[in-house]
Write a protein that binds this DNA or RNA. Structure first.
Ligand SMILES: [Mn+2]
Ligand SMILES: [Mn+2]
Ligand SMILES: [Mn+2]
Ligand SMILES: [Mn+2]
Lengths: 216, 216
DNA sequence: AATAAAGTTTAGGCAAACCTAAAAAATATA
DNA sequence: TATATTTTTTAGGTTTGCCTAAACTTTATT
């Protein structure tokens, strides 16, 4: 499989999860920073290879072998992210771009040994579950902070927005994986929330609370 | 720089070191497992980019910026080899192919942190010196075992032949980096040598003694 | 239902990195 | 030195992955 094919499969997997139905060439191409015509071409090729189901004008969906392939790449991506964060002291916002390259290295032994070296981690530094070698993923029912009520408490397990600026903001506010977030108050007029993290109270905007995932 | 350009620069660097003069398209293409016509094309492109000096029919030579670029890739290759051997328990003969891919990952921070994580190693698992971030390499006067006399003692610092079968042979014979090799005897009829390694005597063929490097 | 807008595909090109086959140059041999 | 052999370059193709512009299909609006 080529680098480009791998990136398409991974993208289709993510977008398929988000929305329900077939992923349109428009959405897919925007996600990959390419043109719709390019997406159409690639989708046709993946269909011929038996990795996706594609009906013209109806979008694309991974079939079983496509999903297994996608999960293998996601496994590699998340293991490398874990390596970069835990062993090389990369910060939350720096790991993604490098992992985007490393995920395409071809060596079964490499990824097996990396997994072992890291102590068989279950989650990556963004709180996303790492698929096992057969492509099995732990299903998590994660909630957004915005879905909690005053009085509730959640443990931060990830983010939705992975932009540098947001991740840097979280770093500054000392919000990291495992942080316990207690909801103190909810302001109706702007949907912001007052939360307590490690005995420190702060106000999070609606945008912020919608982009932080917690396990309750 | 593209992956292919990087591989060409690295190859030219190695071949230039071996022979003295300009590297011919024939030699270069054989080394890279490509056709001479492809080498000519690439060389012309590298010349236009100012990385090599190329005169038709006269072969190619790296100029200063080409050499710096080559050494940066070699630095990455050797750091990754060290990582694979030291941290992921790859054996001597397994590391090269994976490092051949990893050397092309683009991230200054990655290689800086990897270097730190490994404790700023000076040599790779084959005994070759790792260039520093400015492209400076330690010049080593290494000798082949075949150049030693009975009574001499050397410390194994690398190999010339990096084929799997040779490296596996060395593994079986417990010859590794740092092994102290004492020359017991030299057989004139077949140029083989009796050597002592860790209180064990064995006979090495001429082919073997010519492909093991030692520091005396 | 007819028309306008938006989304999707097709057609035709382009650059990178390969290739084969033919032409040209350098080198070896008679 | 003339000819044969080897090496190198050039010319023309192919594949992958991208693009733009035009044609077509679907969806939204009047
Ligand atoms: Mn990627
Ligand atoms: Mn992640
Ligand atoms: Mn390489
Ligand atoms: Mn090496």
């Amino acid at each position: 499989m080529t680098l480009s094919e791998e990136n398409y499969l991974k993208s289709i997997y993510s977008l398929q999860r988000e929305h329900g139905k077939g992923v349109s060439t428009n959405v897919l191409s925007k996600y990959l920073d390419a043109k719709p015509a390019s997406a159409t071409e690639m989708i046709k090729k993946l269909d011929e290879k038996g990795l996706v189901r594609y009906q013209p004008y109806q979008g694309v969906l991974l079939n079983e072998s496509g999903e297994i392939s996608a999960l293998k790449i996601i496994r590699k991506h998340r293991l490398w992210e874990t390596f970069l964060a835990q062993k090389l002291d990369f910060s939350w916002d720096e790991i993604h771009d490098v992992a985007e390259q490393l995920e395409h290295i071809k060596s079964d032994k490499l990824i097996q040994q990396l997994d072992k070296f890291l102590g068989y981690p279950k989650y990556d530094p963004h709180g996303d579950p790492i698929p096992d070698e057969h492509g099995h993923v732990i299903k998590m029912e994660k909630k957004r902070v915005s879905q909690l009520q005053p009085g509730d408490t959640g443990t931060c397990i990830g983010v939705n927005d992975t932009s540098s600026s947001f991740l840097q903001f979280l770093d500054q506010q000392n919000i990291r994986l495992g942080s316990v977030i207690h909801i103190v108050n909810f302001q109706d007029f702007d949907k912001s929330m007052t939360v307590r993290i490690e005995d420190r109270e702060l106000i999070l905007s609606q945008i912020a609370t919608e982009n932080i995932y917690v396990r309750i």
